[in-house]
Amino acid sequence: MKRLTERCRELGIRVVLDLVINHCGYDHPFFQDVVKNGERSVYRDWFYIREYPVTLSDTKYDSVWYYRWMPKWKTSNPQVKQYVFDIVSFWQKETGIDGWRIDVADEVELSFLRELNSHVKQINKDAFIIAEIWHDAKRLMMSGGTDSVMNYDLRSILIDFIVDRSITAEQFHARLVRYVNRYSEAELSQMFNLLGSHDTERILTRCGNRIELLHLLVALQYTLPGNPVIYYGDELGFQGDNDPGCRACMTWTADYKNHPLWTLLRQWNRLKTTEAALQHGHVELRHIPELDVYAVKRMYGAEQAVLLLNFSQQDRRLDEICRQLGCDTDELHAVQFPAVSRPEGLLLAMRYAFF
């Protein structure tokens, strides 16, 4: 692990490990000691035990989502805290990793997350903590216990409109406006913006294998504030339903350089890493109902980046759209993206422009 971390750093890559401090497995030796020895166990206060004797149960101890196989740690216990701190200290000091992804962070005491964050940064002031949370993360972001969160909240907004069409354009706009105004610009810029993960179906599968929908999701993922996150294999169009379908091994022999998704994501990566407006720009969202066009504008000083999504069944003139947005077409430089087919009858037009 130390050699891997050192080699990654030479390539400009940082390594973050998964840290599960909310729960353990039923077969963990500490929990099995409670099962065997009951109230005489030295670990009886390391868990939330409700009833003795302890057997595999949904009610005799607290577990994650009432899943009996994953009993919860009592992180308010000083012994449990020290146990976690010792684990964190070992891996950071011995291998030089750069941070942690905290599993089920919203079910861990905020006070403990703050202490953990402080402990992690005492070892490495630049260490980065990402928290797993599936809903509104404002309270967690404000707690001082994490630097970033897995942004499932934004993912839901994008998929509800772009993929499922379960909400109208007006509802999509309203939800997106509430989202960007819920967080400070600093918080938004640190978000871990993902489209898929080990806990969801593959994003191309979620799109019904409609590559044009994935193009739109990626365009929004890279234009909105935050850090675009690519789940391994999605750049090669991996497909699969939820666990275990989403966890297939990486195909290292794939001809990735000629894959259209690889090419698309490389283009977006270049823009994200070179355009100051996409990294630091203030975000402005505009819905133009009369044209059925949606615009995401990022502004940073004199620089601006504009993403235009045409959801109508008609071609729209750029000058017509710019008049509505109050921008000058002469100041915008168009970036060409791979053409995407537009199936007959598809309500969601697949043309977008980035300037």
Rank of each mutant, 00 (worst) to 15 (best):
M70D: 00
E132V: 06
T95D: 07
D106C: 12
W46L: 10
K81W: 03
P53W: 03
D86I: 08
M70L: 06
F90I: 14
Y48A: 04
T55W: 01
V108K: 10
L116M: 14
I129H: 03
N117V: 00
T95C: 07
N124S: 13
V42T: 02
E132F: 07
N77H: 13
T95E: 05
A105V: 11
K81C: 06
R139K: 02
S143C: 13
Q92S: 03
F112G: 10
D58W: 12
V42P: 07
V54S: 01
I129W: 02
S118E: 13
M150D: 08
N124R: 11
G96C: 08
K72F: 07
S76D: 15
K74L: 08
Y48K: 04
R50Y: 04
I102F: 13
K81H: 04
Y83G: 00
M142P: 04
R114A: 11
I133P: 07
W65T: 06
W69R: 10
D86T: 10
K72H: 07
T75L: 15
A131T: 02
I49L: 09
F112Y: 12
M150F: 15
K81Y: 05
Y67G: 10
W46Y: 15
E115N: 08
E132C: 06
G96A: 04
H119Y: 15
K74Y: 09
E109K: 09
T95W: 13
I87W: 07
K81F: 02
I49S: 12
W134S: 06
D98L: 05
G145V: 04
Q92W: 02
V84C: 02
M142Q: 15
P71A: 03
